[in-house]
Design a protein around this nucleic acid. Sequence first.
DNA 1: TTTT
DNA 2: TTTT
Lengths: 154, 154, 154, 154
Amino acid sequence: MASLNRVTLIGNLGADPEVRYTQSREAIATIRIATTETYKDKSSGERKEITEWHRVVFFGRTAEVVGEYLKKGSPIYVEGRIQTRKWQDKDGQDRYVVEILASEMKMLGSRPSDSDAPEASNSKRTGKRTGNGNAKPAAASGPAFEDVPDIEPF
Amino acid sequence: MASLNRVTLIGNLGADPEVRYTQSREAIATIRIATTETYKDKSSGERKEITEWHRVVFFGRTAEVVGEYLKKGSPIYVEGRIQTRKWQDKDGQDRYVVEILASEMKMLGSRPSDSDAPEASNSKRTGKRTGNGNAKPAAASGPAFEDVPDIEPF
Amino acid sequence: MASLNRVTLIGNLGADPEVRYTQSREAIATIRIATTETYKDKSSGERKEITEWHRVVFFGRTAEVVGEYLKKGSPIYVEGRIQTRKWQDKDGQDRYVVEILASEMKMLGSRPSDSDAPEASNSKRTGKRTGNGNAKPAAASGPAFEDVPDIEPF
Amino acid sequence: MASLNRVTLIGNLGADPEVRYTQSREAIATIRIATTETYKDKSSGERKEITEWHRVVFFGRTAEVVGEYLKKGSPIYVEGRIQTRKWQDKDGQDRYVVEILASEMKMLGSRPSDSDAPEASNSKRTGKRTGNGNAKPAAASGPAFEDVPDIEPF
DNA sequence: TTTT
DNA sequence: TTTT
């Protein structure tokens, strides 16, 4: 039987993208996207929210676009597939990280330059990207963002 | 901005479903689904396979159906959302498991009873398939198949 | 705002594929896929079925595969986009046909040769399925199946 | 074999929603959504655009939300299924209209009231909705919007 | 950490 | 008819 592994996300970036380059000069961008569900708690009956953080990885030209046009808070549509990657933590223990390997991306902001003063956006964006996101972006739903080693391209 | 967290899987069960019941008698079924990607290894250039295992959870009536009709090897289509769940291992350490909370499921086996009654499946299947394609499939929902001129490539 | 036009279908071919070739030798295959919904009639309360027929078009290499391996009754998974095409009928009147321009296709039959060699399909299929579910499906991509505590319903 | 008929759209409304009510007081909202693809023309090699217009129908509570919060130009995410509906034109000829019966909808505008002065939005929106869209919204890719009779709920 |  |  054929198989299918498809993920579709709409959400906002929790931090600026992290972009790096392989030795063969291919760009790899990693972002964190938040999606939020609301549900009614069974016992209390009150409306609650649950947020899931997704680690999404882009390759090549799309990774460059992500690094150039997206930043913390940007709304985005992503298609991709789920992939679990194994790595060893500092104690040599096996750890697993689940990533969405993106195959398609659409920026949902009405216009990148609208919300940001165009004349200031470049330096600002660069500055934030250099700052490399916030301290503990992943604390709520997985190992910390910075602990996980980079993915290697196939 | 609205958010979306959607997963679509087609794959086979790696083991029989595990079904349990909550105190309020709601069924919860957990299965493992494998999806396989093929890709070309960059250095060797040879075709390789990578299998991803998805932990999928069903609730309520669907969970009962899963427990009743699916088993190891069954092909299945699943829709749901990704959710990371935190738990503590025996050392008290925080661990995370990623699950697909299913909202929809379709059994893809040609027929549930096929594997159970193999001696009858062939003639039955042939009969059904013939019935499936009617003489004039297009008549009900659009102009006849043959009337429409061919599409031209861009 | 970005736009998205995505269709996903699972169904059976209502007839054998129609394949033709452009002058530049590109294959174009057209099929009709049936999908069936069941619903409860509001007045009578009885369960009813409604079948929708989709005209799906493939290009290039995929079109060749469709023409070679699929036939009336074949189960298929299709991804693509909706496109309305204008044409003139014999009276010169404008007519419109809605087509799904396929970007991805997966054959869902357990095996192409099943229907062709029915006498051999059973033993073959059983053998494959057994091979499909390995002893420890979860070992490769996450913590062992049994280690993870059960999810609690909301 | 199970079947699936799933459509996912992101686009903008070409006109204000049309809302009507059944005798049982169920709301039915119809909108037109544009999606745009860009492609390279094979002969000229230049970048071209092709716009597809989708007729999307909502029922019940969602239809009310659509009528209340969306208007011409609003960005929207829609999930649903394709359904062809047969009707007779004024000459008694069979005609077919393809509709997306929506099962889910998410408003993608950063915030309904942001772009519109909140104190003026109600009257303005009501005014436009009364105006009932533009003269010939559907001319480009199907029969005119107003020619098609309303869908009847199941 | 996002967003509403 | 939308939007970029």
